[in-house]
């Protein structure tokens, strides 16, 4: 398989790294919007860290926080989002009925949310 160093992968990598590299205030870190990616069935919690994750529906090029939001559903790479990304404008938002917050069990990327901020909800 050819190695890819294309822009598409750069964008995804930088977005994944950016979630933990950005300068953010305590308030920004603590706030979980009513409709947050971490509460959505399409959020796949990344293994590296509990802040960032992947959207299982939206592909690279999407931007759910821009005005107007952009939705791309075709393509190879996903978009990286955080558990507390504001998803209020996302047309794919699909709220989970039950969130597994039992941190004593092994993590299921689809249903487990172990962030302190999510447990406060």
């Amino acid at each position: 398989m050819p190695r890819k160093r294309g822009r598409e992968w750069d964008v995804i990598r930088d977005a994944m790294l950016g979630a933990s590299e950005a300068v953010r205030s305590v308030e920004e870190r603590e706030t979980v919007p009513d409709k947050a990616c971490g509460k959505c069935k399409n959020f796949f919690q990344a293994g590296l860290g509990t802040t960032s994750g992947m959207c299982n529906v939206l592909k690279e090029g999407s931007n759910i926080e821009s005005d107007p939001p952009v939705f791309v559903t075709q393509g190879e790479g996903f978009i990286a989002v955080s558990f507390n990304t504001d998803a209020s404008k996302c047309e794919c938002y699909n709220e989970m009925e039950i969130i597994d917050t039992d941190i004593s069990q092994a993590h299921d990327p689809m249903v487990s949310r172990h962030q302190r901020q999510m447990l406060k909800e």
């Binding site: 160093r5 992968w9 990598r13 994944m16 990344a46 790479g77």
Partner: peptide
């Protein structure tokens, strides 16, 4: 992660 190819970096970070 920035020394690797970006595709490799992304696939690592998926951690599957």
């Amino acid at each position: 992660m920035r020394d690797l190819s970006s595709e490799e970096a992304v696939k690592i970070m998926c951690t599957v």
